[in-house]
Design a binder for these strands. Structure first.
Lengths: 208, 208
DNA sequence: AAACAATACGACCGATCGTTCGCCTTTTCA
DNA sequence: TGAAAAGGCGAACGATCGGTCGTATTGTTT
């Protein structure tokens, strides 16, 4: 191992990797304090960096917020979406998707729970690039969910549901389960699981 | 009209009425900027008061946040709950309740939309008196909604639904409609109305 | 009328915020 | 190898924050 090879890790750390580390931590903090509650100085001391160093890496706070949104999207994709892609299209994939999603709410990857469930209500009334990014992420997720439902419908399942409507309803219930569970409602998650079970399973016997 | 009578209005303004005015405006601001985004100085200049004046009226920012939660609760009660109390118990009252609720989301009483939908996700991971107050308000509302559903069930309606579960689901869908509509999804509100219609109407013909 | 509590104010405090600047080191590129 | 670009730091900036103090005014109570 030459010196240049030994340094290759550090070379990666500096630059893009530093950005990713900061953005990931920013997403963690924002899941609790909100994207507005992010502080360059707090983030820097948390990671043992200087405030000005973080500032020069992202330029301004808004860019940091956008990076946090993108980092949180990556976490969601690898935690919830990726496992479902291993299953075949149709009901199996949809079930895995929803199961991983509920697990993601039950044992969150971030200290404040689901990042999207926290940031959409925070920024839904604040025009600007951050809201646009959050809105696009939400739209992307609902579209993906709707597509998974359509694949299941192609196999004859969920015939009595409109795909987009069911996607909206599933998202609403899981988001409410996230908020409810975090605010101390122990029945929120079991209730949400029951609702999801009814929504996805009712067509089998047309009603349990 | 004597001078003392002429002054009676101002006498009411000073004190409790000033508190109510400030708290009401604080709820408006918080519906957009969040309860954390509240600023004593900003509120004061908005209302033509001094920052220290507002500060002495509420003592600390946390008390102002609690007052905003209470004020928002009053708005919700008079806008959504009160109209439904004029109807008889059972399905009519439940329908009016949900209709006023959806109208409250469609044409919001506050510039940032539904106060509860904004503050529950904001504070669900922040222990303290404010989260407790928000959690209690949410619990109170879900309990009231569940009770309205039970009255409808006493008349034989919604027999295939668990009341608490249906209350949770309705709340989830309307909250998602609020966030969705505010973030630019024009289909969110119509979709939510369709879901609510299905949830409350399906027992009539067991499925439309 | 006199004492008292509640309002309301301007001024100010320490802390924290996002951002900028100069300076140096490290990496990249010609 | 040498120039250029990017990373990273300490220091400092103006602004805003919540909160406090002293003081004057108002309303209530004795």
């Amino acid at each position: 191992m030459t010196d240049s090879e030994r340094l290759s890790d550090k070379r990666l750390i500096k630059g893009a990797r530093a950005r990713a580390t900061i953005a990931r931590h920013a997403a963690d903090v924002a899941s609790v304090e909100g994207l507005t509650g992010l502080s360059l100085g707090k983030l820097a001391t948390d990671l043992g960096l200087s405030k000005s160093g973080v500032s020069t890496l992202f330029g301004c706070k808004e860019n940091l917020q956008l990076a946090a949104v993108e980092s949180a999207r990556d976490v969601f994709l690898s935690t919830v979406v990726a496992p479902a892609l291993n299953d075949e299209r149709g009901l199996p994939r949809l079930r895995t998707l929803v199961d991983r999603w509920l697990d993601y709410v039950a044992t969150p990857a971030m200290p404040g729970g689901c990042f999207r469930a926290a940031t959409v209500p925070e920024f839904d009334s604040r025009p600007g690039p951050v809201r646009d990014a959050i809105g696009a992420d939400r739209r992307e997720w609902l579209d993906f969910l709707e597509k998974a439902i359509r694949y299941a419908q192609d196999d004859g399942a969920l015939a009595d549901h409109d795909a987009a409507t069911l996607a909206f309803e599933l998202d609403a219930v899981v988001a409410a389960a996230n908020s409810g569970a975090r605010i101390g409602d122990e029945s929120a998650l079991p209730t949400a699981r029951r609702i999801v079970e009814r929504l996805l399973g009712e067509t089998d016997q047309h009603r349990l």
